[in-house]
Amino acid sequence: MAKEITSPEQSSHAVLIKPQRGLVGLDLAELFRFRELILFLTWRDILVRYKQTLLGGAWAILQPVLQMLIFNVLFGDIAGLSSGGVPRPLFTYAALLPWNLFSTAMSDAGRSLVTNRNMITKVYFPRIIVPLSSVLSGVVDFLVAFLLLAAMMVYYGVMPTSGVWGLPLYLLLSLVTALGVGLWLAALNVHYRDIRYIIPFLTQFWMLATPIAYEANEVFSRLPAGWEWLYALNPMVGVIEGFRSALVGTPIYSLDMLWISILTSLVLLFTGLVYFRRMERTFADVV
């Protein structure tokens, strides 16, 4: 009788628990087994985001619109910066969308482990799921806000360029960057709650260092020749420039710079993963 209980299938669940040292690879097969949890947590974050708000999901559009209005007054009417030959609202809004996707994803992911500490201290699952689903949940907001962008393009009579096929690439790049930085922040936040206070500054500073209200050209052209890559180290430069150019046809400084953005982004993701995996084993004890 006892033999029936020990079905051969169980050997596939055999686990050896022991102290872990050194580098641990990311177990993609395990992550795949937990794919439903990733979806559920993403779904939860989306459901909860605008609960008990008066305006609900309208915030997904209101936020970038209000930001756009402020930026237009500050950088357009007051500072008088160029908007690359397209209507300024379009110029700013098209940049704000991928930026907001990135910044929300990054800061949510950065806070995610601490916010979900009751799960982390009670149940086992690959911890990376927590920041990962925080990053994913921002996509819905992006899509909602994107509807307004489409409407604005119709209103201003602006057609997307042939580069529109690059959009998924830019979005992926911004999500990868957000995840990379988010992993760093999340793991650090478990040990050092300072991160909670650093995140808003980081977001603000990064936003100003990204060509949202101005053209990347303004920065590139001020850098000494041969040093332009410095600015492209910010992966969001490539994302924003690329995204905006593909949709509304603003001029792009140089497509080569995109490779630098991709490279930085991958470096951030890789180091973030390594650090996260290294710290992971103490999360439950410290958080």
């Binding site: 020990t6 169980q10 050997s11 669940h13 055999a14 686990v15 050896l16 628990i17 022991k18 102290p19 872990q20 979900n116 009751n118 799960m119 982390i120 201290t121 009670k122 149940v123 086992y124 084993r281 103490t282 439950a284 004890d285």
Partner: peptide, 25 residues
């Protein structure tokens, strides 16, 4: 598997479900 041991090891043969606290999440 919520936390790692410092020493020794444990062999687990089968899918583990843990009820360390109800209502998690």
């Amino acid at each position: 598997r919520v936390t790692d041991p410092t020493a020794g090891y444990a062999h687990i043969n089968g899918r583990v479900g843990s009820l360390l606290e109800v209502g998690t999440g």
